[in-house]
């Protein structure tokens, strides 16, 4: 089935990170902080984080922060939860969270919680269980979960649970593997996994595996490498990952590599991007592929990084 071409992927990520003037990077400019998280986490999982200049990245990240405490997707962009989590995660990778004014960031996040427990993504008021996850994960990494009403946050997530055991973006919305990752992740972090119907959800999740070995995110959709992450991490968090065929999934992910230029695509023979490269490599790590650092399924960071954050003073 071929191997993970680590050196090629490393080169690909470094090239994408550096090519600020390529057309792709101009269009992606507004979410560069997400891109940095995907690229740098992938490098760390592959044991290659030392190829980047940490100080340069850290100083750039700090320039993305606003007065409010939140981070924009790049310098000069408005703050949003999506990029605030990426900033915290990347600083965590470099063991640099101490450069943050932790309470300031935490207050920004806590200020986005609504009376029903849900979270807005920013001051414009979009509500989505993705933002519940982001807020809870960020605050946990900052060790400031006490700033929000965790009980209400959990109740809101549970109100998005469907009869198939899955979760959607708002109450009544269709179950979707990406949303399920967010909801299960948030419940895992807050110690509320007893609110998940694990057997029912586990069955829905393992039904996502198709004949190709790949996973889809909803019934009757195509398999896609990014769901290796969302479905797998959810299965691991609810302790049901042995219900899928791991070898077939590993083969599917490896078949999505560009073996010449590096990078991983959504499905075999499509164009590669950093997003799917991250999900492919992180998925392989969850599948215990040799040579990769283990990844924490809830925090979406290498386990050693998470341990360093929680067990340091």
């Amino acid at each position: 089935m071929g191997e993970l071409v680590v050196e090629k992927h490393t080169k690909y990520i470094v090239t994408v990170e550096k090519s600020k003037d390529s057309f792709e990077s101009v269009v992606m400019e507004h979410l560069r902080l997400n891109g940095a998280y995907w690229g740098l986490t992938t490098l760390d999982i592959m044991g290659k984080l030392d190829v980047v200049d940490q100080d340069e990245v850290v100083s750039w990240i700090m320039q993305c922060q606003h007065e409010s405490g939140g981070f924009g997707g790049n310098i000069g962009h408005d703050p949003h939860l999506l990029y605030t989590l990426s900033a915290i995660q990347v600083l965590g990778l470099f063991n640099k969270t101490d450069v943050l004014d932790i309470d300031k960031v935490a207050n920004y996040i806590a200020g986005l919680q609504n009376a029903d427990g849900s979270f807005n993504g920013d001051i414009w008021g979009e509500v989505d269980t993705r933002f519940s996850y982001i807020a809870i994960c960020s605050l946990a990494l900052l060790r400031r979960l006490d700033k929000i009403n965790v009980e209400k946050a959990v109740e809101y997530i549970v109100s998005c649970k469907n009869v198939d055991g899955g979760f959607g973006c708002t109450p009544g919305a269709e179950s979707h593997a990406g949303q399920i990752f967010c909801c299960v992740g948030a419940l895992a972090i807050t110690g509320s996994l007893d609110r998940v119907d694990k057997d029912l959800l586990g069955w829905w999740l393992c039904e996502r595996q198709l004949k190709s070995g790949g996973l889809n995110g909803r019934p009757e959709k195509l398999a896609d490498v990014c769901y290796s992450w969302w479905v797998l991490s959810s299965l691991i968090m609810i302790d049901r990952v042995h219900w899928i065929d791991k070898d077939k999934l590993i083969k599917f992910i490896l078949d999505c590599q560009d073996k010449e230029k590096g990078g991983i695509s959504d499905r075999p023979d499509d164009a590669v991007d950093v997003f799917h490269t991250y999900f492919g490599v992180a998925g392989l790590s969850l599948l215990e592929y040799p040579g990769l650092k283990p990844v924490d399924p809830a925090y979406a960071l290498p386990v050693d990084v998470v341990n360093r954050i929680f067990f340091s003073k």
Binding site: E29, H30, H77, D78, H80, D122
Partner: peptide, 13 residues
């Protein structure tokens, strides 16, 4: 030119 750029949308509002 770039419908995914959230800062432009927010400024438009």
């Amino acid at each position: 030119l770039n419908p995914g750029n959230y800062t432009i949308w927010q400024f438009r509002r």
